[in-house]
Design a protein around this nucleic acid. Structure first.
Length: 137
DNA sequence: GCCAACGTTGGC
DNA sequence: GCCAACGTTGGC
C-alpha cells in the first residue's frame, strides 16, 4: 500500500466536486509534468491519497482512493500523458493547512513542504499518519 | 498581483 | 550536451 498527495486549485476542481462524483470517481486529468505522471503510473488500485487545495485554503481537506490505473488522459491526444482515476473516501475532520505542516518537524521532509510545485506527490507512511492525526481521522 | 522556484524548450 | 529564455505553479 502506497500513499500519495493530489493537488488541485479548488476554483478549478475542488473536494466538493470530487465528492459529487461518488464512488465512480473521476479522471485526474491535466497533469503535464513527468514526475507527477510517473507517480501516477506507480499507483495501484486501492492506494490512498490526500486531496490538497492549493492557492485557496492551502490545506489537506480529504482522503481519496485510486480506483483506476493510469490510462491515457482524455483531455489530450499527446500519448505522453496519462492519469489515474480517484474517488473520494472521506473528509478530514480538521483540514491540515500548509502552515501546520511546515510547523511540524515530523513533516519537514514532506514533498508538500520541500517541493511545492509538484502536483502529484508520494507521501511516506509516517507522514500519512501524522497528517491523519492532525486531521482527526 | 508579484515573484521565486522549477521544468521545459530550443538554439548553438 | 549546455544553457539561456521562457512558461507555469503556487505561496505570499
Amino acid at each position: 500500500m502506497a500513499y500519495w498527495l493530489f493537488k488541485s486549485e479548488p476554483d478549478a476542481w475542488g473536494w466538493d466536486d470530487q465528492v459529487a462524483k461518488g464512488d465512480a470517481g473521476e479522471e485526474w486529468d491535466g497533469v503535464r509534468n513527468y514526475q507527477a505522471r510517473n507517480n501516477m503510473r506507480a499507483m495501484k488500485i486501492g492506494d490512498l491519497g490526500f486531496f490538497y487545495h492549493s492557492n485557496v485554503g492551502k490545506e489537506v481537506v480529504g482522503i481519496v482512493e485510486v480506483c483506476r490505473l493510469s490510462a491515457p488522459d482524455s483531455t489530450t491526444d499527446d500519448p505522453r500523458w496519462d492519469c489515474v482515476h480517484i474517488r473520494a473516501v472521506k473528509p478530514l475532520k480538521h483540514p491540515v493547512t500548509l502552515e501546520q505542516a511546515k510547523r511540524d518537524p515530523r513533516l519537514a521532509e514532506m514533498a508538500l513542504v520541500k517541493n511545492t510545485r509538484l502536483s502529484v506527490q508520494p507521501v511516506t507512511e509516517s507522514e500519512w499518519k501524522v497528517i491523519c492525526e492532525l486531521g482527526g481521522v
